[in-house]
Design a protein around this nucleic acid. Structure first.
Lengths: 349, 349
DNA sequence: CTGTTAGCGCCTTCAA
DNA sequence: TTGAAGGCGCTAACAG
């Protein structure tokens, strides 16, 4: 049961293979009569072009590879959705791969995609410190756009949010409100289990945020700013927060969550400990998740333009493919702070 | 800059194309010495097999097509994630397509995937009433597994939740608690904008749920059960709910949301109207979204086994591909009701 | 306008 | 064990 090919159509229509191919492929000129005959023959036997074979000769696969950390993460889900829409509109299919935020899996995925001869790639590098595999993409002549994070020392296009700036802005706001003990929670892990150096943070976007956070706190006492790592999942975030909040006078009066899953953990921890938000604790989280609007009080969030970021990345890639232009434009899309009531005055106000 | 091919490697290693192909493709027998030489040559020039060409001759693409309504929907996001994991472990890549719950887009996506010669497909039919395009997949000899919903009158494998049963169970529970006015909210649309017949509901899973809902209410007065359609998105769900709740004595005392987005809209509407949950209104929603746990009171939910469903579908497809077995097994995975406090007694208790 | 011919990169006979 | 030749389905260059 081999699917019908151009030859089959040609034979049935009584024309040469080339002629049939022309009408089937929609290129070259063919007389109306023959065109109709071939189309009819094709429809009769249910012909469908073999895109693989087509790719072989054209060199294009009309397929884009996308590698993200976790499709189940709403941020990526929305972004991927946006990318697909833009890409589909331009006639590209999408080959999706999950890296589970693991460098090894990311490498494997990229390898597979290169083997499939994708026309371009959008990748969210799991670790900004390793970029050899990304360089391999570029060396293969495949257009690449980094998404949400950028690898260090790699002259490749990218689309990111203004992580550093918005983190600094939020931190400044908290300081202005009188907070002098602020904790930033991230899912990133370090070898020691504690944070000591920015270099330990592999996720580019998170590193940027922490950089902004720390920069905003310059001039304050050493104890003012704290980074808590390893908050993987709501449960772990909750237990870490519970621990931190139990320090009494040493406990932070404000917390920033690096994603909404963590935010949920922090919120739950505060409630469980009977700590009032925003009177005794201020809370801000990245990502405008559902729950933040119905929590009591509503949670002040840093809304990430996931859709816009995705669209922008897709467009940037398309441009790169179409113009063959290798300029490594770097686009930054601003986040938006949505105040909802979870931020109150600190002790120094 | 054409990527290196077997010929290039062969030339560099000083052997014939066939020999190089044998070691590169990992088939046939080659002497150790030559094997090493070829491998070395391949590494030096950065050879990477062209999977497209390979597919041309083998007939397999090692790629699976997945078509779902909306990747940004957490249910599908989790399911797709699970599918990819299982498929990747078996060496398959994933070609993902969004149908936006539109039949036309679904058809287009399937067409593209067939053109790309995928080895199998997993599809969530947008409309169970139309199955010609699904039949085309089967006719092409491509293994197919339906996901979450099944098209009517199509002997094709599928994995679904026990939508009808669990909907009936929840409805029975509400009736037992004394509710005699229960409304079911769905995002599905009908021509008239109101619900009159099960046949109008195109989404298979939703139709099943409504069937269970209605079956559970048999014997009650005609006014007892109501189906509200067109609750697309939280906002629209909220306004529809507000309208329904403003009926005074005629208003439902219990509501069931067909997904968590709708649930959020209903919850918000109730709060805005100052209607106490569960004292004056009971609420149940499909999908165990994170907001349901922190709402006040916690929302009783019907938890869908998204991950399990996805894994199961992937495994079923793999089995079908490997054994060439065309049996149309139909697997049903049970949902789980998680009581959280949003269900109270109705007037008749 | 139409047909002939020659590849794309790989796998797969068939001989040697 | 190795090499030469042919073909998968399609496009592309060249004649006619």
């Amino acid at each position: 049961m081999r699917p019908p090919s151009v030859s089959d159509v040609a034979r049935r229509a009584g024309v040469s293979k080339a002629t049939a191919a022309r009408v089937l492929g929609g290129y070259g000129r063919v007389s109306a009569a023959i065109h109709a005959a071939v189309s009819a023959a094709a429809a009769e036997i249910g012909y469908r072009p073999n895109e693989l074979a087509r790719s072989m000769t054209t060199g294009r696969s009309d397929t884009i590879g996308i590698v993200v950390g976790d499709i189940a993460n709403p941020f990526f889900a929305v972004a991927v959705h946006a990318m697909s829409q833009v890409l589909r509109a331009e006639g590209f299919g999408v080959l999706l791969a999950n890296s589970a935020e693991s460098l090894a899996e990311e490498k494997a995925a990229i390898d597979t995609l290169l083997g499939r001869r994708v026309d371009g790639m959008i990748v969210s590098p799991a670790d900004m410190r390793e970029s050899s595999h990304l360089r391999a993409i570029v060396d293969s002549g495949v257009p690449l756009v980094q998404f949400d994070r950028c690898a260090a020392g790699l002259a490749v296009a990218g689309v990111t949010a203004d992580d550093r700036d918005v983190a600094a802005e939020v931190t400044h706001m908290l300081i202005r409100r009188g907070h002098r003990r602020i904790a930033y929670f991230t899912a990133c892990e370090t070898d020691s289990g504690r944070f000591s150096d920015l270099e330990e943070i592999g996720t580019g976007s998170v590193r940027e945020r922490i950089a902004g956070f720390l920069a905003a706190g310059e001039g304050l006492e050493d104890t003012a700013l704290e980074v808590v790592v390893g908050a993987v999942g709501a449960k772990r975030a909750q237990s870490l927060a519970t621990e931190v909040l139990s320090r009494g006078a040493e406990a932070p009066t404000a917390m920033i969550a690096s994603d909404s899953t963590i935010g949920l953990g922090l919120y739950t921890a505060a409630r469980a400990a009977g700590i009032a938000i925003p009177q005794a604790l201020s809370l801000v989280t990245f990502h405008d998740a559902d729950w933040t609007a119905i929590a009591h009080p509503g949670i002040t969030v840093i809304s990430q333009p996931a859709r816009r970021l995705g669209e922008e990345a897709a467009r940037m890639l398309i441009r790169q493919i179409q113009t063959g232009d290798g300029t490594c434009a770097h686009r930054v899309v601003p986040c938006r702070i949505i105040p909802r009531g979870s931020v109150g005055d600190g002790p120094v106000s």
